[in-house]
Amino acid sequence: MTKVPYQSAIGSLMYAMVATRPDIAFAVGVVSRFMSNPGKKHWDALKLIMRYLSGTKDKCLCLGRGDVSIIGYTDSDYGGCADSRKSTSGYIFQIMGGVIAWRSRLQDCVALSTTEAEYVAASEACKEAIWLSRLASDMGIPQHVPKLFCDSQSAIALAKNPVYHAKTKHIGVRYHFIRECLANGCISLEKVVSRENAANALTLPYHKMHWGVVIT
């Protein structure tokens, strides 16, 4: 395996992922976890992403189909990393019907419940939402409160209602940032059904169902 250009191949995939291809973000994230000592299977997986990318190279981001206000979607998987059992959080932001910002990232802490994983993901997305809405206002695109959609009812409840609960008392202080933002009215958090959640694309391997939602 020392003969394959594993790291540089990931670097090249990453450039496509960062610039116009949110649909491969999760897949690239997974193969990147084995950067220091890749095996045959990891290389095969990487080649599969390559082949997918070559086959769908004409897919692109499309802006200009909708409203100017910022809409965000957040999602997470649960214990997706087999080694550390950490979860992956993902968010995606749209403006005028086009995707403008996305991220798929292994969380810093081990989440004890799906609620916690989703809550952590929503907090991460909240930071981006605030920055994006300020940036858009700076560019002369007037903004209302950015809307964030989450598919977990319990994470939304936890963010809106600061109850003290045996199952949530351990959640780190930094993740409660979203509560403050909601209380201040900096963002709004709403429920979306799972299958309409655009951020699915960032916590699941690529799939045709993401076409048309994140890329066109």
Binding site: S12, Y15, T20, S54, C62, L63, G64, R65, G98
Partner: peptide, 30 residues
């Protein structure tokens, strides 16, 4: 811009961002 192709469809009032050239060049290169 930065390896992305910008295409405009003025009738639909849309802007498309694509990396088709980058991807084909990169796969040949690999």
């Amino acid at each position: 811009i930065l390896g992305m192709r910008i295409t405009r469809d003025r009738s639909k009032r849309c802007i498309y961002l694509s990396q088709a050239e980058y991807i084909s060049k990169y796969s040949r290169d690999l």
